[in-house]
Nucleic acid binder design. Structure first.
Lengths: 330, 330
DNA sequence: TTGTAGGCGTTATCAA
DNA sequence: TTGATAACGCCTACAA
């Protein structure tokens, strides 16, 4: 250790740098100052590689599932990750991401960073392959809005309940004929369960309420304008859109077609992220508590790492309806 | 080492796993197979922490300047980084990013990951603080389209020449009155030199050619539609837009205002990224050779790391005009 | 209050 | 062809 060059043992330096007060107070101020000065002069930074080797832990968490190529548009993920990262920082962990090296066998595995980390935070779309890879690593992990494997923990949103709440509200407002605008953003990713699940939940709920199920199954590949006019043709009084992106695009299309929201048709979206409240009209949405989920995921992960008991393997969150002005009473 | 549990020394295991053929061929096939089998059974993975400590290098490169919060829209960066990452992977390096922990003193420093890496790739907007931090780390780095400090290497684009080429072309096509649409995407980042530099280069070139300088300085805060009608009012025959984002927004606004491109006014953008060729009409752009820059940056960084001589500290790239159908002859 | 020594998992060197 | 050993930089008992 370089700082020993000021005439003191490396053990003392280590103690000073880490403010180690384990046995009494230790360290003469005079020595302390001399060390700090030398450290500053030499711009010395302890080698975390060695520290990690010694401690058998890195205090680094990797976020898996971020897409550096296509930057998934979902703001929900961003909000959740941001919250999780804040918590992790507070608890003394660093957070990293890896640009995954494409797997030699062309599978969707190979996302794990080669360097050593203490835990994983899973977001976005996880394929079976990638989940298996994570499981096999033996490293603790928590998924945020993601399916997880046997050993995995997760924070998930109760989408079924969310759909129920939306429909409760829409029915309360007198709506019967409700169209569903499916998600198209993840069209390219066949493993995206979120899109399929939400749609399935919608169909199930509509049926169980004996509401009319409009022809909207093919809406995943319909143009926005076509979807709107088709919905009106089917006398829909409200549209439920898969996510904010879809809502915004539909509202833009409506504007161009001179369809007024909510006068001509009501609109409900998902995810209460940034522009939702700024739209014209302000959009009523089912809000996913992204930041809470992120925070909770971070806490769960750290609990796991520090050997604390984690009561629920899957922590469920409720969506909250945020009523603004895009739904009219019929 | 666990795999020693199959009755052989750790040195041998190490040799087998790394395919070490340094002294003759070594290793009896029988022993080799036994080791490989045990490794597979125990799902053993060498500890990179220890390897890094021993080798005094990590084979990890960190990308600095990516914004996990606001997702900078620039596709140029993405393309460059993607290319750089590919090269680095091929050369045996891993690539990571850090979610920076906000600096305690609130400065823009604190972007460096705490874990040990061999080199940095700088992208996006680098403030003086962050550059100083990188310099002080003593770790080799290469900037991609970024200013760098004393010890830094970089791949940069010759923007002045690019502006000259555009104006050459526009003049050749008979244009005299050329409006400049400034960048607004980075408005929030006062340290963004790219926006200011390109604008300054444009003004300088227009003056040196004795072309009329239209009133467009305030365009950074003008609505797209206003900018268009104002340009027409000033009898501009062509618009040069800061980047693809601006071009696309202007073209959308033009469509809504029933202004036809290039009949009513010509348009040139910057950055030949994905949608440029798909627009109506296909957009003529100054193409920044993002992928070449990324590749070159990666090569330079690895050369630095491996002690090879790097001839140019700043490697300049030329922009290429890609003529499509958004410019008409006047 | 400070120093000594051992070990974390690897790999390179040298010896067998 | 294989094994023993030292060293990378750090932390922590334990000894002084």
């Amino acid at each position: 250790m370089i700082a020993k060059a000021c005439g003191v043992s490396n053990a003392t330096v280590s103690r000073v740098l880490r403010g180690d007060h384990s046995n009494g107070f230790s360290v003469r101020p005079q020595v302390r100052d001399r060390i700090m000065q030398t450290v500053a002069e030499l711009n010395y930074r302890p080698d975390l590689t060695a520290r990690s080797l010694r401690a058998q832990q890195t205090h680094v968490i990797a976020v898996l599932g971020l897409n550096h190529q296509w930057k998934s548009a979902s703001d929900v993920n961003n909000a959740a990750i941001g919250a999780a990262v804040d918590v992790l920082h507070e608890l003394g962990y660093s957070v990293c991401t890896s640009f995954p090296k494409p797997a030699a066998d062309g599978s969707s595995a190979g996302q794990l960073p080669p360097w050593r980390v203490d835990g994983y935070l899973l977001v976005g779309i996880q394929t079976k392959d990638s989940l298996m890879e994570v499981e096999a690593s033996g490293i603790p992990y928590v998924g945020i809005n993601t399916r997880v494997g046997q050993k995995g923990y997760a924070c998930q949103v109760d989408d079924d309940l969310g759909i129920q709440k939306v429909l409760d509200y829409l029915q309360e407002m007198g709506h019967q004929r409700i169209a569903y605008r499916n998600g198209s953003a993840d069209r390219a990713r066949p493993d995206s369960h979120a899109v399929l699940d939400r749609h399935a939940a919608f169909v199930r709920e509509i049926r169980s309420r004996d509401l009319p199920l409009l022809d909207h199954h093919e809406s995943m590949v319909m143009e926005d304008a076509d979807f709107l006019s088709d919905s009106l043709r089917q006398k829909a009084t409200a549209i439920l859109a898969y996510d904010l992106t879809e809502s915004i695009r539909l509202m833009q299309a409506a504007y161009q077609l001179d369809i007024q929201i909510p006068k001509d048709i009501s609109m409900v979206g998902f995810n209460d992220e940034y522009p939702a409240a700024m739209l014209t009209p302000p959009l009523t949405v089912m809000g996913v508590p992204a930041r809470s989920m992120g925070r909770q995921a971070a806490v769960m992960l750290v609990d796991l790492l520090q050997g604390r008991e984690v009561s629920e393997r899957i922590h469920m969150f409720d969506e909250q309806l945020i009523t603004r002005q895009s739904v009219a009473r019929v």
